[in-house]
Simulated assay, not measured.
Amino acid sequence: MSVKNTNSTSDFILLGLLVNSKFTGIVFAVILAIFVVAITANPVMIFFIHRDSHLHTPMYFLLSQLSIMDTLFTCTTIPKLLVNMISNEKTISFVACGIQLFLCLTMMGTEFFLLGLMAYDRYVAVCNPLRYPVLMNRRVCLLAAGAWFGGSLDGFLLTPITMNVPYCGSRIIDHFFCEIPAVLKLAFADTSLYEALMYICCVLMLLIPISIISASYSLILLTVHRMRSAEGRKKAFTTCSSHLTIVSIFYGASFYTYVLPKSFHTPEQDKVVSAFYTVVTLTLNPLSEPMDCSCQAPLFCCVPASLVYQGPDVPC
C-alpha cells in the first residue's frame, strides 16, 4: 500500500504499525475486535458503577476512573491506526499530531498514578480491612483528581516543547501514532537537552507510583504469608495477580519507550512495545479482574471479586 504525497508542508505522514505486510488484513481485524471490546467493556462498567448506589465505594470509583481513562486513551490512537491501515492517505496534520501527543501523555501519566492508587487500595483491603472505610473514604476522590492533574501536567510540559522543535526535510513518522521518540527523530536540531529533561520527567513519573506499588505489595505478601486460611491466601493472590499483570506490562512498555537509551531501540520494536500499552493493556484492564457471582448488587450478576468485601481474612 503506497503512501500518497501531501501538499501541506505542516502535515506528518504516519507509516503505521505494519509497512507493506501481507498480514495487514488479519492485523486490522484483530485490532478492530480489540477496539470494539475496549469501547464496549469500559463504558458498560462505568455505567453500572455509577448507576448502582451499592457500588458507590472507593474501590469501584477507582475502577471507573481507570475505565474512563482507558476509553479516552483507546479513542486517541486506535481509530487513526485503523483508518491508516485501509487508506492510502496516511497524513496527520501538525495540530492533530500535537493533540494526539498531548492526550497520550496525559492518559499515560494518569494511568501511572491510578495504578499506584489501586495498589494502595488493595493494600488497605488486605492488611487493614476493618479500617478500610476510614482510610479509603471520600478523600479518594481528591487522590484520583491528583492523578488526572499529574497526568495532564506531563502533557502540558512535554507537548509544547516537542511541537516547537524545528522539523525540516522528512515528515515521515515511522510509527502508528505521534509518540515523542518517533517524532523527535525528524527534528532538525540538537534535542539532547530536551531528551534529558524528558528522561528525568519520565523517571519521576514512574518512580512515585512504582514505589507505592512495591511497598503495597510487599506488605500484602507479608500479610498473606501470615494468613491461616488457605482460601484467604488463594483469594488474595488471585486478586493481586491480575493487577500486577497489568502493572508489569504497562510499566515495562513505558520504561522501554521513554527510559532505555536509543541504542536499545529499533522502529519495529518500538511499534510493537507501544502497541502493548496503547492497545493490549487498555483492553485487559476491565477484563482482568477475577469475577465473583455471589454478590447481591442488583445491577451486577458478576462483579470483580477483588471489589467484594468478604471480611478481614480476604482481600476485599
Rank of each mutant, 00 (worst) to 15 (best):
T239G: 15
I31T: 08
K90D: 04
L82A: 15
Y258N: 11
S211N: 13
C127P: 12
I213C: 14
Q310R: 14
N7C: 06
F255A: 13
L17H: 10
A236H: 11
F176W: 01
C293H: 10
D52Y: 07
Y132V: 00
R51I: 03
P290S: 06
S214K: 09
I220A: 09
L101A: 10
K234G: 02
L14R: 13
T283W: 05
N164D: 10
S2P: 07
Y217S: 06
K271W: 02
Q65D: 02
W148D: 07
M85F: 06
I46M: 06
N84M: 08
V259L: 13
A145H: 02
R139Y: 00
T266V: 14
G16F: 03
I68Q: 14
L186W: 04
I213L: 04
V280L: 15
T77A: 06
Q310F: 05
A297H: 15
L184V: 00
S67T: 09
L186M: 02
S8E: 00
M59T: 10
M107R: 12
D11L: 06
A215H: 01
T191R: 01
G146K: 05
N285V: 04
A125F: 03
L158Q: 08
H56Y: 07
D121A: 15
L207P: 04
L105H: 05
Q65M: 14
G109F: 02
L284N: 07
A33T: 09
E289Y: 04
P312C: 09
Y123K: 14
F94Y: 13
P160H: 11
Y167L: 07
N164G: 12
G151S: 07
G98N: 06
V36W: 08
E268C: 15
S2F: 02
A29M: 12
Q310P: 10
P166T: 02
I13T: 04
Y60V: 04
R131Y: 02
A182Y: 06
V44A: 09
L101M: 13
G169P: 05
L101Q: 12
I46D: 04
L193T: 03
Y194W: 07
I26N: 09
W148T: 01
S216R: 12
P290E: 08
G98R: 02
I78F: 03
S294V: 08
C301M: 11
T106L: 06
T24D: 05
R233P: 08
F35K: 06
F149V: 13
R122Y: 15
F300C: 13
L186Q: 08
F250T: 11
A305C: 14
L299T: 15
Y120L: 15
V224R: 13
G151H: 01
P129G: 08
V37I: 14
T191G: 08
V259E: 01
P181H: 12
F250R: 12
L157T: 00
D70P: 10
Y60T: 09
M45Y: 12
D52W: 04
K4T: 02
N164K: 00
V126H: 02
P43E: 00
L130D: 14
S288Y: 07
T74A: 09
G252S: 15
T245Q: 04
F237P: 10
D313G: 00
A144C: 12
P160C: 03
M291C: 06
V314Y: 00
S229I: 09
T6S: 05
